[in-house]
């Protein structure tokens, strides 16, 4: 059976048109390739420091 209040809490406001610009700016575009590149870069830098 539906718990009305709980179900209602799952609904989130829809993104308004005026908020598109902010949404784009706030978008996290980091993908798996970026993460891997960062890990590789950090690994290389650590290796240089050790040397």
């Amino acid at each position: 059976m539906i718990n009305f209040e709980e179900e209602l809490s799952h609904f989130k406001p829809s993104l308004e048109v005026e908020e598109v610009e902010d949404a784009i700016v706030d978008s996290d575009l980091t993908d798996m390739a970026d993460i891997m590149m960062n890990l590789i870069r950090e690994g290389s830098e650590n290796k240089k420091k050790d040397e």
């Binding site: 829809s14 993104l15 308004e16 048109v17 908020e19 598109v20 949404a23 784009i24 978008s27 575009l29």
Partner: peptide, 13 residues
Amino acid sequence: TGETAEALVQWVI
């Protein structure tokens, strides 16, 4: 699905 603003975000990016 009616989320025009969300669509615009994706298309602009």
